[in-house]
Amino acid sequence: MAQMQKTLEVRNLRKSFGGVMAVDSVSLEVAQGEMLALIGPNGAGKSTCFNMVGGQFPPTEGEILLNGGDGTAVPIAGIGSRRIWQLGVGRTFQITATFTSMSVRQNVQMALLSRRHMIWKFWPRADDLLSDEALALLEQVGLQAQAERAAAVLAYGDLKRLELAIALAGAPKLLLMDEPTAGMASGERTALMALVRRLVSTTGISVLFTEHDMDVVFEVSDRILVLDRGRLIATGTGAEIKANEQVRAIYLGTGRTSGGH
């Protein structure tokens, strides 16, 4: 990974809420085509990190730099989630967010139209716009056969796939996935993350994700970062993290294997 281009670089990121330091001097890098897992016990600061990278929270201190595509590093700290999305950072959430009254295809079309700033200008005939592109994205996530079904009737695992297609509609260079398999059965978790792994391999997209299922983390991640009480305590491959005594004592060895914030 060291020789690959950086998609994201975070330097000395800090976030305080009142007198509580939720994230304390965290630095990390995500390389192009890398799946990087961010794990830690409840209260470790994972979601706070995500919300700063995604633009939901401005950092108290630190830098967040996104690859501008031309060799430049674009500072994105504190510029807002909409602008960060436009620059190429997609996101999925623990709780799926879809338009339940629309079809599966229309949900993806809305994201495609939004990316092109076309939603209101062409609204009367929006159903005809970018349909082929929407169907191609649905094929990528295994939902093309359900394109005309209402999103409201999808099984939960398929809703997660739809949310992934919507995120991909923004043509992200970096995808943030916050607890992507929350609420899913074991087989669904494995299938979804295997799909993400294939997309990383075929498209070169970078993924930064949090996950409560350690089997998933060790199966699909290229590297793992471990947070505890807002500080980064370990970085390495799955094998290195499993062998790290500090991680075992603080996280893996305590039985606290559910994700948190």
Rank of each mutant, 00 (worst) to 15 (best):
A171H: 11
Y156L: 08
G238D: 05
A249V: 12
A73Y: 10
L138E: 00
Q32S: 10
S81Y: 03
L154H: 08
D158Y: 01
D127K: 10
L159Y: 01
N107Y: 12
G183S: 11
F99A: 06
A44K: 01
G80N: 07
L176S: 00
L8R: 04
L135D: 15
V20F: 05
L208T: 00
Q144T: 12
A22W: 02
A136R: 13
R198L: 08
D228K: 13
L38N: 02
I119L: 15
G71S: 09
T98N: 09
T96K: 00
N51V: 04
F209C: 03
R125G: 10
L28W: 05
L154G: 01
T60P: 04
K15E: 03
F122G: 05
S201K: 06
P41Y: 10
S206F: 01
E34L: 14
I39N: 01
Q106V: 03
L137P: 02
M110C: 14
Y156H: 12
L175S: 03
A31G: 11
R229A: 14
V220Y: 02
L38A: 06
I166P: 02
T235K: 08
Q56C: 13
I205S: 02
E179M: 09
K121N: 06
R82Y: 13
A73E: 14
V10A: 03
T100Y: 12
A77W: 00
D228M: 12
I79A: 05
T7L: 02
V141I: 13
A147M: 09
T48A: 10
F99I: 10
W120E: 12
G170Q: 02
P180A: 13
A165F: 01
M4I: 02
M1S: 15
V74P: 00
M35D: 06
I241E: 05
A169F: 07
A31H: 07
R125V: 11
V26P: 03
L168A: 14
M102F: 12
Y251V: 09
L38G: 03
W120L: 14
F57K: 04
D158P: 07
A234T: 07
L159V: 07
L143F: 05
E61D: 09
F122C: 04
G68A: 10
S16Y: 06
F93C: 11
W85T: 13
F218M: 14
S221G: 13
D158L: 06
R231Q: 13
T92S: 00
A37H: 01
E63I: 14
M184D: 01
I79M: 08
G187M: 11
I76Q: 02
G43T: 10
S27Y: 04
T254I: 12
L162I: 07
S47R: 00
M193V: 11
L195S: 05
K160I: 01
E61A: 15
R125T: 08
E9I: 07
G33Y: 03
T100Q: 13
E179I: 08
K6S: 12
F209M: 15
A111W: 02
T60A: 12
L36W: 01
L65P: 03
L252C: 09
V216I: 14
R125Y: 09
M214V: 13
G33V: 05
K46I: 04
S103I: 08
M177A: 04
G236H: 13
A31I: 04
T92C: 00
A169N: 09
L137A: 04
A73C: 05
D70H: 11
G18H: 12
